[in-house]
Design a protein around this nucleic acid. Structure first.
Lengths: 140, 140
DNA sequence: ACAACATTGTAACTATATAACATTCTGGAG
DNA sequence: CTCCAGAATGTTATATAGTTACAATGTTGT
């Protein structure tokens, strides 16, 4: 197979992905929950992946474009759950500590409150990390 | 020196600390900003620290009692900035990406909004990780 | 064909965190 | 006091997460 960019056809394709980016995004899309970079690496051994860097490079790009989110409190990654990975600014994640599933949360009041907090003491927010750890409805 | 618990006299002492916990808390109190576990280890070599576990064990306890907070997005730790480390539930951290300093934020409306979000889809929040990355007033 | 650039491959390394087990200290029961 | 139990500590090895440096290959435009 020659090297080229691939449109990833998971039903929607806002960006063209390279081969490795496609493979990594595929692994994350198949997964029920978040995966660590090394878990992804293991899943892609058969596709020729040998070193962590191959995964991290792909993840960097995918996170940059918003197709994948990084969960700081887990050191893990999830495919964005929004159709088309387009708009939808996600502000928060709800992470179930029992089943491991992650829900994305978009909440205008929450965003607004964070913006307000920001101005208060002159702090400028560039990125908000909001991760709610707990139990999902199914696991309660 | 015989082994015993020490009250840590940083002006206020809500809990009795063991020797190692005291040393680790001291290192974090002295620091301007958050420290990684391995940075703490290096600073405590002269006090007899040799292995990461000595630091992590102390940190576990200090985090549990609320005297130290863990910053998930940095893999680092800060001494709680509240006098006496007693009440004051901290809900969020403002982390300056230039000078590295961290401010603790207690905000009732923010907490309230997170509680509301929770009930919405049956998710039960056990712990909220809120870390705002950006620029502090001094660095803007 | 060839130059310029993007993508990928590979090895070694640094950073973060835990597991398993041995030792020492402290405080209480006999 | 002695001995025992539990807490705290020490030590070695290992697991997990992420980066640096450099080589090789593919792709595109001229």
């Amino acid at each position: 197979m020659t090297q080229q960019t691939h449109s990833h056809d998971h039903g929607r394709a806002p960006v063209d992905l390279t081969k490795n980016q496609s493979l990594v995004f595929g692994a994350l899309s198949r997964a029920e929950g978040p995966l660590s970079a090394y878990t992804i690496l293991d899943q892609l051994r058969d596709d020729g992946f040998r070193a962590p860097l191959q995964v991290y490079r792909a993840l960097d790009k995918l996170v940059e474009t918003g197709m994948v989110h990084r969960l700081e409190s887990l050191n893990a990654f999830v495919a964005c759950s929004h159709p088309g990975c387009d708009s939808h600014e996600t502000i928060a994640f709800a992470i179930c500590e029992t089943c491991g599933k992650v829900a994305e949360i978009s909440d205008e009041p929450l965003e607004a409150r964070i913006r307000e907090l920001t101005g208060k003491d002159g702090f400028t927010v560039k990125r908000a990390v909001v991760e709610l750890r707990g139990l999902c409805a199914a696991c309660s």
